[in-house]
Write a protein that binds this DNA or RNA. Sequence first.
DNA 1: TAGATTGTTAATCGATTAACAATC
DNA 2: TAGATTGTTAATCGATTAACAATC
Lengths: 208, 208
Amino acid sequence: MKKTISQATIDRLPLYFRTLRLAEAEDLPIISSDELGRRLDITPEQIRKDLATFGQFGRKGIGYDVRELKERIGNILGLHKNWRLAIIGVGHLGGALANYVNFAPLGFSVVALLDINEKIIGNEVNGIEIEDSRRMNEVIAAKEVDIGVITVPAVEAQGVADKLIAAGVKGIWNFAPIKLSVPPNIPLVNEDLSIGLSALSYHMTQED
Amino acid sequence: MKKTISQATIDRLPLYFRTLRLAEAEDLPIISSDELGRRLDITPEQIRKDLATFGQFGRKGIGYDVRELKERIGNILGLHKNWRLAIIGVGHLGGALANYVNFAPLGFSVVALLDINEKIIGNEVNGIEIEDSRRMNEVIAAKEVDIGVITVPAVEAQGVADKLIAAGVKGIWNFAPIKLSVPPNIPLVNEDLSIGLSALSYHMTQED
DNA sequence: TAGATTGTTAATCGATTAACAATC
DNA sequence: TAGATTGTTAATCGATTAACAATC
Protein backbone atom coordinates (compact mmCIF):
# COMPACT_ATOMS: atom_id res chain seq x y z
CA MET A 1 0.00 0.00 0.00
CA LYS A 2 2.93 2.37 0.63
CA LYS A 3 3.34 4.58 -2.40
CA THR A 4 6.75 4.54 -4.01
CA ILE A 5 8.65 7.81 -3.76
CA SER A 6 10.65 8.78 -6.81
CA GLN A 7 14.42 9.02 -6.51
CA ALA A 8 14.19 12.50 -8.02
CA THR A 9 12.07 13.62 -5.09
CA ILE A 10 14.37 11.98 -2.56
CA ASP A 11 17.36 13.70 -4.13
CA ARG A 12 15.71 17.11 -3.80
CA LEU A 13 14.86 16.74 -0.10
CA PRO A 14 18.48 17.29 1.03
CA LEU A 15 18.50 20.54 -0.95
CA TYR A 16 15.34 21.70 0.79
CA PHE A 17 16.83 20.67 4.12
CA ARG A 18 20.02 22.63 3.55
CA THR A 19 18.22 25.73 2.38
CA LEU A 20 15.91 25.59 5.38
CA ARG A 21 18.91 25.25 7.65
CA LEU A 22 20.36 28.43 6.14
CA ALA A 23 17.00 30.19 6.42
CA GLU A 24 16.81 29.18 10.06
CA ALA A 25 20.28 30.63 10.62
CA GLU A 26 18.96 33.89 9.13
CA ASP A 27 16.12 33.78 11.69
CA LEU A 28 13.56 33.58 8.93
CA PRO A 29 10.41 32.20 10.60
CA ILE A 30 8.32 31.43 7.49
CA ILE A 31 9.22 30.60 3.90
CA SER A 32 7.03 30.16 0.82
CA SER A 33 7.52 27.51 -1.84
CA ASP A 34 8.20 30.46 -4.11
CA GLU A 35 11.12 31.74 -2.08
CA LEU A 36 12.50 28.26 -1.47
CA GLY A 37 12.30 27.62 -5.21
CA ARG A 38 14.03 30.89 -6.00
CA ARG A 39 16.96 29.95 -3.78
CA LEU A 40 17.33 26.55 -5.41
CA ASP A 41 16.29 27.10 -9.02
CA ILE A 42 13.43 24.67 -8.55
CA THR A 43 9.84 25.57 -9.42
CA PRO A 44 7.50 26.15 -6.47
CA GLU A 45 5.05 23.65 -7.99
CA GLN A 46 7.75 20.98 -7.91
CA ILE A 47 8.49 21.70 -4.27
CA ARG A 48 4.84 21.57 -3.24
CA LYS A 49 4.43 18.32 -5.18
CA ASP A 50 7.46 16.78 -3.51
CA LEU A 51 6.24 17.73 -0.06
CA ALA A 52 2.69 16.55 -0.79
CA THR A 53 4.13 13.05 -1.14
CA PHE A 54 4.76 13.01 2.58
CA GLY A 55 1.81 14.93 3.92
CA GLN A 56 0.80 18.50 4.61
CA PHE A 57 3.43 20.87 5.87
CA GLY A 58 2.34 24.43 5.21
CA ARG A 59 -0.43 26.90 5.80
CA LYS A 60 -2.43 28.20 2.87
CA GLY A 61 -1.96 31.88 2.28
CA ILE A 62 1.05 31.89 4.64
CA GLY A 63 3.80 29.45 3.72
CA TYR A 64 5.92 26.97 5.65
CA ASP A 65 7.29 27.27 9.17
CA VAL A 66 11.02 27.09 8.52
CA ARG A 67 11.98 25.28 11.68
CA GLU A 68 9.13 22.80 11.50
CA LEU A 69 9.59 21.96 7.83
CA LYS A 70 13.34 21.50 8.32
CA GLU A 71 12.64 19.20 11.23
CA ARG A 72 10.11 17.13 9.32
CA ILE A 73 12.25 16.76 6.20
CA GLY A 74 15.16 15.79 8.42
CA ASN A 75 13.00 13.07 9.96
CA ILE A 76 11.87 11.80 6.55
CA LEU A 77 15.51 11.57 5.46
CA GLY A 78 16.50 9.92 8.72
CA LEU A 79 19.02 12.65 9.51
CA HIS A 80 18.08 12.55 13.20
CA LYS A 81 19.49 9.07 13.59
CA ASN A 82 23.18 9.91 14.01
CA TRP A 83 24.51 7.37 11.58
CA ARG A 84 27.97 5.97 12.24
CA LEU A 85 30.32 5.64 9.28
CA ALA A 86 33.40 3.51 8.63
CA ILE A 87 35.66 4.45 5.75
CA ILE A 88 37.39 1.55 4.05
CA GLY A 89 40.49 2.59 2.15
CA VAL A 90 42.28 5.56 3.65
CA GLY A 91 43.94 6.93 0.53
CA HIS A 92 43.60 10.51 -0.60
CA LEU A 93 39.84 10.32 -1.07
CA GLY A 94 39.14 8.28 2.07
CA GLY A 95 41.30 10.67 4.05
CA ALA A 96 39.47 13.67 2.65
CA LEU A 97 36.13 12.15 3.64
CA ALA A 98 37.46 11.44 7.14
CA ASN A 99 38.02 15.17 7.41
CA TYR A 100 34.85 16.28 5.64
CA VAL A 101 33.14 18.91 7.77
CA ASN A 102 29.75 18.84 6.06
CA PHE A 103 28.74 15.47 7.49
CA ALA A 104 28.27 16.55 11.08
CA PRO A 105 25.35 18.96 10.55
CA LEU A 106 23.52 16.17 8.72
CA GLY A 107 23.97 13.75 11.59
CA PHE A 108 26.76 11.54 10.26
CA SER A 109 29.90 10.74 12.22
CA VAL A 110 32.97 8.93 10.97
CA VAL A 111 33.81 6.47 13.73
CA ALA A 112 36.24 4.06 12.08
CA LEU A 113 38.94 3.98 9.41
CA LEU A 114 40.15 0.74 7.91
CA ASP A 115 42.94 -0.02 5.49
CA ILE A 116 44.91 -3.05 4.40
CA ASN A 117 48.22 -1.21 4.05
CA GLU A 118 50.35 -1.98 7.10
CA LYS A 119 52.41 1.14 6.60
CA ILE A 120 49.47 3.37 7.53
CA ILE A 121 47.68 1.13 10.04
CA GLY A 122 48.03 2.80 13.44
CA ASN A 123 48.23 6.31 11.99
CA GLU A 124 45.58 8.78 12.98
CA VAL A 125 43.48 10.85 10.60
CA ASN A 126 41.37 13.60 12.13
CA GLY A 127 41.82 11.94 15.50
CA ILE A 128 40.69 8.50 14.32
CA GLU A 129 43.10 5.59 14.29
CA ILE A 130 43.44 3.57 11.09
CA GLU A 131 42.76 -0.07 11.85
CA ASP A 132 43.56 -3.26 9.97
CA SER A 133 40.79 -4.06 7.48
CA ARG A 134 41.43 -7.75 8.15
CA ARG A 135 39.78 -7.04 11.50
CA MET A 136 36.67 -5.77 9.77
CA ASN A 137 34.10 -7.83 11.70
CA GLU A 138 35.44 -6.90 15.07
CA VAL A 139 35.79 -3.19 14.32
CA ILE A 140 32.38 -2.81 12.69
CA ALA A 141 30.73 -4.49 15.67
CA ALA A 142 32.72 -2.69 18.37
CA LYS A 143 32.23 0.75 16.82
CA GLU A 144 28.58 0.06 15.99
CA VAL A 145 29.04 1.09 12.38
CA ASP A 146 25.88 1.63 10.32
CA ILE A 147 27.31 2.70 6.98
CA GLY A 148 30.37 1.46 5.11
CA VAL A 149 32.08 3.99 2.85
CA ILE A 150 34.10 2.29 0.12
CA THR A 151 37.11 4.23 -1.11
CA VAL A 152 39.34 1.35 -2.18
CA PRO A 153 40.45 0.67 -5.78
CA ALA A 154 37.72 -0.72 -8.05
CA VAL A 155 39.14 -4.25 -8.13
CA GLU A 156 38.86 -4.58 -4.36
CA ALA A 157 35.49 -2.91 -3.95
CA GLN A 158 33.21 -5.94 -4.32
CA GLY A 159 35.23 -7.92 -1.79
CA VAL A 160 35.08 -5.06 0.67
CA ALA A 161 31.33 -4.70 0.12
CA ASP A 162 30.80 -8.41 0.83
CA LYS A 163 32.83 -8.21 4.02
CA LEU A 164 31.07 -5.06 5.18
CA ILE A 165 27.68 -6.66 4.74
CA ALA A 166 28.79 -9.84 6.47
CA ALA A 167 30.03 -7.67 9.33
CA GLY A 168 26.57 -6.12 9.66
CA VAL A 169 26.56 -2.67 8.06
CA LYS A 170 23.11 -1.50 7.00
CA GLY A 171 24.07 0.60 4.00
CA ILE A 172 26.93 1.25 1.61
CA TRP A 173 28.24 4.46 0.10
CA ASN A 174 30.47 3.47 -2.77
CA PHE A 175 33.09 5.71 -4.40
CA ALA A 176 34.79 2.93 -6.39
CA PRO A 177 33.96 3.20 -10.10
CA ILE A 178 32.41 -0.22 -10.46
CA LYS A 179 28.96 -1.80 -10.24
CA LEU A 180 28.58 -3.56 -6.91
CA SER A 181 26.24 -6.45 -6.21
CA VAL A 182 24.55 -6.28 -2.84
CA PRO A 183 21.48 -7.94 -1.34
CA PRO A 184 18.23 -6.04 -1.94
CA ASN A 185 17.80 -5.14 1.71
CA ILE A 186 21.10 -3.24 1.81
CA PRO A 187 20.73 0.27 0.38
CA LEU A 188 23.64 1.21 -1.88
CA VAL A 189 24.46 4.65 -3.22
CA ASN A 190 27.17 5.11 -5.81
CA GLU A 191 29.17 8.30 -5.96
CA ASP A 192 30.79 8.09 -9.34
CA LEU A 193 32.93 11.16 -9.95
CA SER A 194 33.67 10.25 -13.54
CA ILE A 195 30.00 10.61 -14.51
CA GLY A 196 29.79 14.24 -13.52
CA LEU A 197 33.12 15.11 -15.04
CA SER A 198 32.31 13.31 -18.29
CA ALA A 199 28.93 15.01 -18.46
CA LEU A 200 30.71 18.33 -18.06
CA SER A 201 33.03 17.39 -20.90
CA TYR A 202 30.02 16.49 -23.02
CA HIS A 203 28.31 19.83 -22.47
CA MET A 204 31.53 21.73 -23.11
CA THR A 205 31.98 19.80 -26.34
CA GLN A 206 28.47 20.70 -27.47
CA GLU A 207 29.02 24.32 -26.47
CA ASP A 208 31.88 24.70 -28.96
CA MET B 1 17.03 21.28 -35.37
CA LYS B 2 19.47 19.46 -33.11
CA LYS B 3 17.52 17.06 -30.92
CA THR B 4 17.99 17.48 -27.21
CA ILE B 5 19.72 14.60 -25.49
CA SER B 6 18.41 13.70 -22.07
CA GLN B 7 20.69 14.10 -19.08
CA ALA B 8 19.88 10.51 -18.12
CA THR B 9 21.35 9.31 -21.40
CA ILE B 10 24.42 11.52 -21.04
CA ASP B 11 24.99 10.16 -17.55
CA ARG B 12 24.95 6.57 -18.80
CA LEU B 13 27.50 7.12 -21.55
CA PRO B 14 30.45 7.27 -19.13
CA LEU B 15 29.35 3.90 -17.75
CA TYR B 16 29.30 2.40 -21.23
CA PHE B 17 32.69 3.95 -21.91
CA ARG B 18 34.22 2.51 -18.78
CA THR B 19 32.80 -0.95 -19.35
CA LEU B 20 34.04 -0.92 -22.93
CA ARG B 21 37.47 0.11 -21.73
CA LEU B 22 37.51 -2.91 -19.41
CA ALA B 23 36.24 -5.18 -22.20
CA GLU B 24 38.99 -3.87 -24.44
CA ALA B 25 41.53 -4.70 -21.73
CA GLU B 26 40.11 -8.24 -21.74
CA ASP B 27 40.72 -8.35 -25.50
CA LEU B 28 37.02 -8.82 -26.13
CA PRO B 29 36.51 -7.83 -29.78
CA ILE B 30 32.71 -7.68 -29.89
CA ILE B 31 30.06 -7.04 -27.26
CA SER B 32 26.26 -7.22 -27.40
CA SER B 33 23.87 -4.78 -25.76
CA ASP B 34 22.82 -7.77 -23.70
CA GLU B 35 26.28 -8.38 -22.27
CA LEU B 36 26.96 -4.68 -21.78
CA GLY B 37 23.65 -4.42 -19.95
CA ARG B 38 24.45 -7.42 -17.80
CA ARG B 39 27.69 -5.84 -16.66
CA LEU B 40 26.00 -2.58 -15.74
CA ASP B 41 22.53 -3.60 -14.58
CA ILE B 42 21.00 -1.64 -17.41
CA THR B 43 18.51 -3.18 -19.84
CA PRO B 44 19.79 -3.86 -23.35
CA GLU B 45 16.85 -1.91 -24.78
CA GLN B 46 17.91 1.13 -22.80
CA ILE B 47 21.45 0.87 -24.13
CA ARG B 48 20.34 0.51 -27.75
CA LYS B 49 17.97 3.45 -27.31
CA ASP B 50 20.72 5.61 -25.84
CA LEU B 51 23.11 4.79 -28.65
CA ALA B 52 20.42 5.31 -31.30
CA THR B 53 20.32 8.95 -30.24
CA PHE B 54 23.75 9.42 -31.74
CA GLY B 55 23.60 7.16 -34.80
CA GLN B 56 24.23 3.57 -35.67
CA PHE B 57 27.05 1.78 -33.97
CA GLY B 58 26.50 -1.94 -34.21
CA ARG B 59 25.92 -4.76 -36.63
CA LYS B 60 22.63 -6.61 -36.59
CA GLY B 61 22.99 -10.20 -35.56
CA ILE B 62 26.54 -9.54 -34.35
CA GLY B 63 26.85 -6.79 -31.75
CA TYR B 64 29.19 -3.84 -31.25
CA ASP B 65 32.87 -3.61 -32.02
CA VAL B 66 34.29 -2.89 -28.57
CA ARG B 67 37.15 -0.67 -29.69
CA GLU B 68 35.08 1.28 -32.16
CA LEU B 69 32.13 1.87 -29.85
CA LYS B 70 34.46 2.95 -27.06
CA GLU B 71 36.13 5.37 -29.42
CA ARG B 72 32.87 6.81 -30.65
CA ILE B 73 31.34 7.25 -27.20
CA GLY B 74 34.59 8.88 -26.10
CA ASN B 75 34.26 11.34 -28.97
CA ILE B 76 30.64 12.10 -28.13
CA LEU B 77 31.62 12.82 -24.54
CA GLY B 78 34.60 14.89 -25.65
CA LEU B 79 37.04 12.68 -23.75
CA HIS B 80 39.58 12.95 -26.57
CA LYS B 81 40.10 16.63 -25.90
CA ASN B 82 42.56 16.44 -23.02
CA TRP B 83 40.83 18.93 -20.79
CA ARG B 84 42.99 20.94 -18.42
CA LEU B 85 41.73 21.37 -14.85
CA ALA B 86 42.49 23.89 -12.14
CA ILE B 87 41.45 23.09 -8.60
CA ILE B 88 40.50 26.07 -6.47
CA GLY B 89 40.76 25.38 -2.77
CA VAL B 90 43.43 22.88 -1.84
CA GLY B 91 41.97 21.54 1.37
CA HIS B 92 41.41 17.86 2.02
CA LEU B 93 38.98 17.38 -0.86
CA GLY B 94 40.88 19.55 -3.34
CA GLY B 95 44.08 17.74 -2.43
CA ALA B 96 42.43 14.36 -2.93
CA LEU B 97 41.20 15.40 -6.37
CA ALA B 98 44.70 16.63 -7.25
CA ASN B 99 45.85 13.06 -6.60
CA TYR B 100 42.86 11.31 -8.16
CA VAL B 101 44.13 8.64 -10.54
CA ASN B 102 40.90 7.99 -12.40
CA PHE B 103 40.99 11.28 -14.31
CA ALA B 104 43.91 10.47 -16.60
CA PRO B 105 42.30 7.58 -18.53
CA LEU B 106 39.35 9.87 -19.28
CA GLY B 107 41.56 12.59 -20.69
CA PHE B 108 41.61 15.06 -17.83
CA SER B 109 44.78 16.55 -16.36
CA VAL B 110 45.08 18.70 -13.29
CA VAL B 111 47.44 21.50 -14.33
CA ALA B 112 46.96 24.10 -11.62
CA LEU B 113 46.17 24.39 -7.93
CA LEU B 114 45.05 27.65 -6.39
CA ASP B 115 44.41 28.64 -2.81
CA ILE B 116 44.07 31.85 -0.84
CA ASN B 117 45.85 30.55 2.25
CA GLU B 118 49.39 31.93 2.29
CA LYS B 119 50.56 29.14 4.54
CA ILE B 120 50.14 26.56 1.79
CA ILE B 121 50.91 28.68 -1.29
CA GLY B 122 54.19 27.40 -2.70
CA ASN B 123 53.66 23.85 -1.43
CA GLU B 124 53.47 21.06 -3.95
CA VAL B 125 50.69 18.48 -4.21
CA ASN B 126 51.28 15.58 -6.55
CA GLY B 127 54.05 17.58 -8.20
CA ILE B 128 51.92 20.67 -8.78
CA GLU B 129 52.71 23.92 -7.01
CA ILE B 130 49.91 25.66 -5.15
CA GLU B 131 49.59 29.21 -6.46
CA ASP B 132 47.95 32.30 -5.05
CA SER B 133 44.28 32.43 -6.04
CA ARG B 134 44.58 36.21 -6.19
CA ARG B 135 46.61 35.58 -9.36
CA MET B 136 43.69 33.65 -10.87
CA ASN B 137 43.58 35.43 -14.24
CA GLU B 138 47.26 35.04 -14.89
CA VAL B 139 47.42 31.36 -13.89
CA ILE B 140 44.31 30.30 -15.78
CA ALA B 141 45.63 31.95 -18.94
CA ALA B 142 49.23 30.73 -18.61
CA LYS B 143 48.23 27.14 -17.87
CA GLU B 144 45.48 27.17 -20.49
CA VAL B 145 42.91 25.90 -18.03
CA ASP B 146 39.58 24.68 -19.48
CA ILE B 147 37.74 23.57 -16.34
CA GLY B 148 37.63 25.11 -12.89
CA VAL B 149 37.08 22.71 -10.00
CA ILE B 150 35.61 24.47 -6.98
CA THR B 151 36.50 22.94 -3.62
CA VAL B 152 36.34 26.04 -1.45
CA PRO B 153 33.83 26.56 1.39
CA ALA B 154 30.28 27.30 0.25
CA VAL B 155 30.38 30.98 1.18
CA GLU B 156 33.33 31.59 -1.15
CA ALA B 157 32.15 29.44 -4.04
CA GLN B 158 30.13 32.02 -5.99
CA GLY B 159 32.99 34.54 -5.88
CA VAL B 160 35.41 31.89 -7.11
CA ALA B 161 33.02 30.89 -9.90
CA ASP B 162 32.72 34.51 -11.03
CA LYS B 163 36.49 34.93 -11.09
CA LEU B 164 37.03 31.65 -12.93
CA ILE B 165 34.58 32.64 -15.64
CA ALA B 166 36.10 36.10 -15.95
CA ALA B 167 39.48 34.40 -16.29
CA GLY B 168 38.16 32.36 -19.20
CA VAL B 169 37.38 28.83 -18.04
CA LYS B 170 34.85 27.02 -20.22
CA GLY B 171 33.20 24.85 -17.60
CA ILE B 172 32.84 24.47 -13.85
CA TRP B 173 32.81 21.38 -11.65
CA ASN B 174 31.45 22.47 -8.30
CA PHE B 175 31.87 20.56 -5.02
CA ALA B 176 30.67 23.37 -2.77
CA PRO B 177 27.20 22.65 -1.39
CA ILE B 178 25.52 25.74 -2.78
CA LYS B 179 23.60 26.74 -5.88
CA LEU B 180 25.89 28.71 -8.20
CA SER B 181 24.75 31.25 -10.78
CA VAL B 182 26.70 31.10 -14.01
CA PRO B 183 26.03 32.36 -17.55
CA PRO B 184 24.09 29.91 -19.74
CA ASN B 185 27.04 29.28 -22.03
CA ILE B 186 29.20 27.94 -19.17
CA PRO B 187 28.37 24.32 -18.39
CA LEU B 188 28.18 23.66 -14.66
CA VAL B 189 28.06 20.30 -12.93
CA ASN B 190 27.44 20.04 -9.21
CA GLU B 191 28.90 17.22 -7.19
CA ASP B 192 26.93 17.38 -4.01
CA LEU B 193 28.05 14.67 -1.62
CA SER B 194 25.31 15.37 0.89
CA ILE B 195 22.62 14.36 -1.60
CA GLY B 196 23.92 10.83 -2.00
CA LEU B 197 24.56 10.37 1.68
CA SER B 198 21.14 11.73 2.64
CA ALA B 199 19.47 9.50 0.05
CA LEU B 200 21.29 6.55 1.62
CA SER B 201 20.01 7.60 5.03
CA TYR B 202 16.49 7.82 3.60
CA HIS B 203 16.59 4.31 2.18
CA MET B 204 18.08 2.90 5.37
CA THR B 205 15.33 4.59 7.35
CA GLN B 206 12.64 3.04 5.14
CA GLU B 207 14.36 -0.34 5.36
CA ASP B 208 13.87 -0.45 9.15
C1' DT C 1 -12.55 41.71 2.05
C1' DA C 2 -8.48 41.20 -1.03
C1' DG C 3 -4.17 39.15 -1.66
C1' DA C 4 -1.25 35.36 -0.93
C1' DT C 5 -0.14 30.77 -0.98
C1' DT C 6 -0.94 25.87 -0.17
C1' DG C 7 -2.53 21.17 -1.56
C1' DT C 8 -4.38 18.55 -5.21
C1' DT C 9 -6.31 17.31 -9.59
C1' DA C 10 -5.74 17.35 -14.57
C1' DA C 11 -2.80 17.98 -18.62
C1' DT C 12 1.48 17.59 -20.64
C1' DC C 13 5.80 16.10 -21.42
C1' DG C 14 9.59 12.93 -21.53
C1' DA C 15 11.80 8.64 -20.53
C1' DT C 16 11.63 3.71 -20.35
C1' DT C 17 9.97 -0.67 -21.91
C1' DA C 18 8.05 -3.75 -25.28
C1' DA C 19 7.73 -5.44 -29.75
C1' DC C 20 9.40 -6.57 -34.06
C1' DA C 21 11.15 -5.94 -38.83
C1' DA C 22 15.65 -5.83 -40.80
C1' DT C 23 19.78 -8.16 -41.45
C1' DC C 24 24.19 -10.21 -40.29
C1' DT D 1 18.86 -21.50 -43.51
C1' DA D 2 18.32 -20.67 -38.45
C1' DG D 3 19.73 -18.05 -34.67
C1' DA D 4 21.25 -13.78 -32.92
C1' DT D 5 21.07 -9.11 -32.36
C1' DT D 6 20.52 -4.38 -33.87
C1' DG D 7 17.76 -0.13 -34.82
C1' DT D 8 13.33 1.83 -34.58
C1' DT D 9 8.47 2.35 -33.92
C1' DA D 10 4.63 1.94 -30.71
C1' DA D 11 2.93 1.44 -25.97
C1' DT D 12 3.46 2.35 -21.33
C1' DC D 13 4.88 4.43 -17.46
C1' DG D 14 6.28 8.14 -14.51
C1' DA D 15 7.61 12.82 -13.59
C1' DT D 16 6.88 17.65 -14.27
C1' DT D 17 3.98 21.55 -15.19
C1' DA D 18 -0.33 23.97 -15.20
C1' DA D 19 -4.49 25.20 -13.16
C1' DC D 20 -7.35 26.21 -9.51
C1' DA D 21 -10.28 25.48 -5.37
C1' DA D 22 -9.51 25.95 -0.55
C1' DT D 23 -8.24 28.90 3.05
C1' DC D 24 -5.25 31.74 5.88
